[in-house]
Every structure is written in structure tokens, then in C-alpha cells.
Simulated scan of single mutants.
Amino acid sequence: MNASPAAFEARLKTNAREIETLLDALLSKGMREDEIARPEILRTAMHYAVLNGGKRLRPFLVVESALLLGGDKGAALRVGAALECIHCYSLVHDDLPAMDDDDLRRGKPTVHIAFDEATAILAGDSLLTYAFDIIAADETKLPDQSKVALILALARSAGLGGMAGGQALDLAAEENTPDEYGIVTLQSMKTGALIRFACEAGALIAGASTDDRKRLRAFGEKIGLAFQLADDLLDVTSDATTMGKATGKDISRGKGTLVALRGIEWAEAELRRHVEDATQLLAPYGDAAATLAATAHFVADRKN
């Protein structure tokens, strides 16, 4: 139950192109109904933040999870685009001097460097808001009940008890290094919550059973843990050129990671365990889940 590496890469790239085409249209100069104006500097900063490269992994998971369960691809692409807006907003804000203070993102100047801090803050705010607009809009062809469920799940994943809360814990970790449970909690929120949503969203789009929703949610949780472990390993084994951003910053700031706490060998073994657990969750779907299974391996094996 696995897609070939070449087939997987081709599918990932195709999805990325589709998502980027949609995001480009959503962030065009053309105003939507009830908008008063689109200030050009803000629109340009949002466009720069979102269309700045990246694998579009989260939208890919939305689309593939939806297709696995018979969901509509057009609706999945729009939900995926909304999720990518949330993800990119978080990167814009994480890079700010008051947060992680990074000058590079995907090998390019971060938004507050390319523009200015105030514009970067507003770009992040606007991307966050726009995500819910995209899901709620008439162009997203889903029943209202499904839209409400998606908006609620995304809000819970992105806010106080999810990604934003995880960033708060991450900032606090610079002062007081958390224990292993604290690190896992932090990472499950900051990184894992949106990946979990991406997989669960597919079931919501497809109107699938509660069992399917729980299974894909669990799959998302596992690959979210794997993603962060792989990230932490890359932070100590890779370089800025390969990563497209500064490396080694967590260690220099004294932040706790599982790699720092338990060592590289342990982390590599734990990473493989998460991938195995994730693929086992997909076993009931057989070959139909080959692409999602390949995604779990891709998350662990990526180089940036």
C-alpha cells in the first residue's frame, strides 16, 4: 500500500500548482462582494506571503483525504487554500522580531523584511480572516452544515487551544525548558493541530462516517508528530541553504526539543514509529490510501 516515489512527487506538484492557481485568483486585485477596497500594499504583501514557494503539504492532505472518501475535489481545493492561508499567516507572524525574529523564509526575505513590520502584522491578520471567508463563500460547494463543521474545526485547530496556543508555549519554552510531555503538547499544538485538521477536513468534506473522521484525525495526529520530529532533526543536521531558513536556532535559544532531550538516534527511531503507526491507520482503505501512506513517508524523509 504505497505509491511510487515518482508518482507521489508528480501528484504533490500537481496539487501544489492547483492550489497556487486558486490562491493567486483569491488574492487578485478583483474585489469580492461587500468588500470596499483592497489596499494594494496589503494585497501584495499577502500575495507574497502565500505565493512564496512551499510544498503545499497541508492542502495536499485535505484533497487526498477527501478523495479517499469520495469528497468533491473542487471543495477540497478551496478548503485546502483556506488552510494554507492560515498556515502562511502563522509563518508571517512567527518570523516577526517579537516572535522568532527570522529574516529568511523559503530562501527569501520574510514579509516584515520585504515590506515592514506593520504590513506583515496586517497581512497575517488578513490571511487568518480570509481563510474563514473562503470556506463560507458560495463558491465552496458544500452544505452549510459541513461548512460550519469545517470552520469550527479550523478555528479550534488554529486558535488558543491549537496553533496560536502552541506558539505561546514555544515562546515560554525559551525561559523555562519543558519536560517531554510539555514538548509533545507544544508541538501537537503549534505544528500538529493544522496537520490534524487537514486530514480530518477530508472526512468532513466527504460527509464521511464518524469512524472515518476519527481514523483520519488520528492519522493526521501521527504525521503531525512525525513532521515536527523530522523538522527538529533537520534543525540539527541540515544547513540554512538547504532549509531556506536559519537552522540551529532552537538550540541556541535553549528551547526544548525531543531531539535535544533524547538524542538523534532515539528521535530517528521514534520518527519511524510514528510513520508506521500512521500507515497502519490507513490499512482498512487498502490501495486506495496509497498516496496518503506515501505522504507519511515523505514527511519523515524530506530534506527541507
Results as ranks from 00 to 15, higher is better:
residue 123 A to P: 01
residue 254 G to L: 10
residue 85 C to K: 00
residue 45 A to H: 03
residue 250 D to H: 06
residue 169 L to I: 13
residue 7 A to P: 01
residue 175 E to C: 11
residue 215 R to S: 10
residue 136 A to R: 13
residue 225 L to S: 08
residue 103 D to K: 15
residue 31 M to C: 14
residue 135 I to P: 08
residue 85 C to A: 03
residue 244 G to A: 10
residue 14 T to F: 05
residue 205 I to D: 02
residue 198 A to Y: 00
residue 164 A to H: 09
residue 137 A to I: 13
residue 162 G to L: 04
residue 280 Q to F: 00
residue 251 I to N: 08
residue 275 V to T: 03
residue 55 K to P: 15
residue 206 A to P: 06
residue 75 A to L: 15
residue 138 D to I: 13
residue 260 A to Y: 03
residue 20 E to P: 09
residue 34 D to F: 15
residue 27 L to P: 05
residue 188 S to K: 03
residue 60 F to P: 00
residue 87 H to S: 02
residue 270 E to L: 10
residue 297 H to Q: 07
residue 18 E to C: 11
residue 296 A to E: 06
residue 120 A to M: 01
residue 173 A to H: 12
residue 194 L to M: 04
residue 297 H to M: 04
residue 201 A to F: 02
residue 7 A to S: 09
residue 10 A to I: 07
residue 181 Y to K: 11
residue 7 A to R: 01
residue 111 V to L: 02
residue 244 G to T: 10
residue 139 E to N: 15
residue 47 H to N: 14
residue 100 D to G: 15
residue 144 D to K: 13
residue 36 I to R: 15
residue 159 G to D: 11
residue 120 A to W: 00
residue 197 F to W: 02
residue 210 T to Q: 08
residue 259 V to W: 02
residue 302 R to C: 09
residue 16 A to Q: 06
residue 42 L to K: 01
residue 290 A to F: 02
residue 35 E to F: 12
residue 20 E to K: 09
residue 274 H to F: 08
residue 183 I to N: 06
residue 179 D to R: 08
residue 269 A to L: 10
residue 289 A to F: 01
residue 7 A to C: 04
residue 186 L to W: 01
residue 6 A to N: 10
residue 189 M to D: 07
residue 101 D to Y: 08
residue 237 T to K: 00
residue 135 I to W: 01
residue 66 A to D: 10
residue 116 D to V: 03
residue 83 L to N: 03
residue 229 L to E: 02
residue 164 A to R: 11
